[in-house]
Simulated scan of single mutants.
Amino acid sequence: MRGRPSHVPISKESILMRLNKSAILFVGVVIAASMTTGPATASADVPGDVLRIVEVGTDAMGADSYANRNREFVKFQNVSDGPIDVANVLVEDNWAHAKTVKGDAHTCNTYKIVDLPDNGTTVIAKGEYVTVFNGSRLGGDRKINGSEYQLFADSDTDCGTAGQFFNNNNDTAWVTKANGDVLSSYSWDHNGGYVFKP
């Protein structure tokens, strides 16, 4: 039989050395795990009160047209005490949100955040805003005033009236995680508001 003979006693120093090595190994594993774990992301563990809808455009003046799709928009703000990763956060209406919750996500009436202009990440700082417009813009997405990301969904004209997917008189704007968990929402039940500031 190989190994240490059973009749040789183990010294206190040997036991302490083994315990110290085990403790050092454990601390190393804990530190390594903490270094590989990034900040909580909105698509994973961010609680629902850190992103807040602050403005919603629901009803473009005049007849709905391809040209005035940007009168429909949702603007939300990071109201937490630190940066938030908004990767895969969705902006939806009632119809799309119901499908997302059922696990039957649809591309219509939904905008998924996959990047931010002039950022290099999908992380927004404390106090920064993201505005998602239903239409498009020559030059694409942009950052303005140093604190607001403007994203343009270029929503499909087959999905709503000329690509405008919010109902004028009764709907909800949702900002959710990828699985439909709600981060913020704003509902309206009357016509003619055009822009609401909750």
Rank of each mutant, 00 (worst) to 15 (best):
D93C: 10
L116A: 05
K75D: 03
A87F: 15
N109R: 15
C108A: 13
E92V: 03
Y111M: 02
D93F: 01
F73D: 13
D85N: 15
T100W: 09
R69G: 06
Q77K: 13
V74G: 08
D93H: 01
I84V: 15
E92G: 06
Q77Y: 06
D81V: 06
C108K: 03
K112C: 05
V74F: 01
K112M: 13
A87C: 11
A96Q: 00
C108M: 11
V91L: 01
D104A: 04
Y66L: 09
A98W: 00
V89N: 01
N78A: 05
W95G: 00
V91C: 07
C108T: 09
N78V: 07
N70S: 09
D81R: 15
H97M: 14
A105N: 08
A105H: 11
N109H: 14
L116H: 04
N78C: 05
V89I: 13
A96F: 00
L116V: 09
E92C: 10
N109M: 08
Y66A: 04
F76D: 09
Y111L: 06
D85Y: 10
N94Y: 09
A67F: 11
N78R: 07
I113E: 00
E92I: 02
G103V: 03
A67M: 14
G62L: 05
G62T: 05
K102V: 00
D64F: 13
D104Y: 08
P83F: 14
G82E: 11
L116G: 01
G103N: 02
V89P: 04
R69F: 14
D81S: 12
Y111S: 11
F76C: 03
K112T: 10
I84L: 11
Q77E: 13
D93Y: 03
T110S: 07
S65N: 12
K102W: 08
K99D: 02
Y66P: 12
T100M: 09
N109T: 10
P83L: 13
T100R: 14
V79Q: 08
I84D: 00
P83W: 09
G82F: 10
V86W: 03
G62I: 04
V89E: 05
C108Y: 11
E72G: 11
N88H: 15
D115H: 12
T100Y: 08
P83E: 04
D85L: 05
V114C: 08
D115K: 14
N94P: 01
C108W: 07
E72I: 03
A87R: 15
V79E: 05
N88A: 15
D64R: 12
L90A: 03
V86T: 12
T107Y: 14
K75G: 10
H106Q: 09
D64S: 14
F76V: 06
F73R: 04
D115N: 15
L116N: 04
E92S: 08
Y66F: 14
V101G: 00
L90Y: 01
Q77A: 06
G103H: 01
T100N: 00
C108L: 07
V91T: 02
K102H: 05
A63R: 15
A63V: 14
F76E: 03
H106I: 07
Y111C: 05
A105M: 13
D93S: 12
Y66H: 11
Y111D: 05
A63Y: 11
P83A: 14
